[in-house]
Simulated scan of single mutants.
Amino acid sequence: MTTDTLSRLVRRAFPGRNPLATVGDRIEGAVLALGVVVAVLAVPVAAAIGSEIYATHESRVEAEQKSRTQVSAVLAEDAPSMDGAAGSEALVETTDAIATWRTPDGLERKGLVRAPYGAEAGTALRIWVDLSGEPTEPPMTNQGAASNAILGALLLWGLIAGAMALLYGLVRFACMRVRLRWWQLEWELTAPDWTGR
Results as ranks from 00 to 15, higher is better:
G24A: 09
E137Q: 14
Q143P: 05
N148V: 07
A149K: 02
C175H: 00
P192E: 09
M1F: 08
G162H: 04
G144L: 06
A146G: 10
S72E: 15
M176Q: 15
S51Q: 11
G106W: 00
L91A: 13
R197I: 12
P138G: 10
I27E: 00
G87L: 11
P192R: 03
W182A: 15
T5P: 00
V178S: 12
T56H: 13
W182R: 15
G84K: 10
A30K: 05
P19M: 03
R181W: 11
W187S: 11
G24D: 08
W183L: 14
R114I: 02
A76W: 00
T100Y: 11
G169I: 00
A46N: 03
S7C: 05
D105M: 00
Q65P: 00
V171E: 07
G152V: 07
A33P: 06
Y54F: 14
D78C: 01
E134K: 15
G111Q: 07
A13G: 03
A90L: 03
L156M: 09
A149F: 03
I27M: 05
A163E: 06
D130R: 09
A97Y: 01
L32H: 01
S147V: 14
S88G: 01
G16F: 01
A21I: 06
E120R: 13
L34T: 12
G162F: 04
A63M: 08
M164E: 10
L125N: 07
R177V: 08
G122K: 07
R197G: 14
E64F: 03
S67W: 00
S72H: 10
A124G: 03
R60D: 15
V129W: 06
A47L: 10
I98H: 07
A97H: 01
R26W: 00
W183M: 14
G144K: 10
E108H: 03
E77C: 02
A79N: 07
P138K: 08
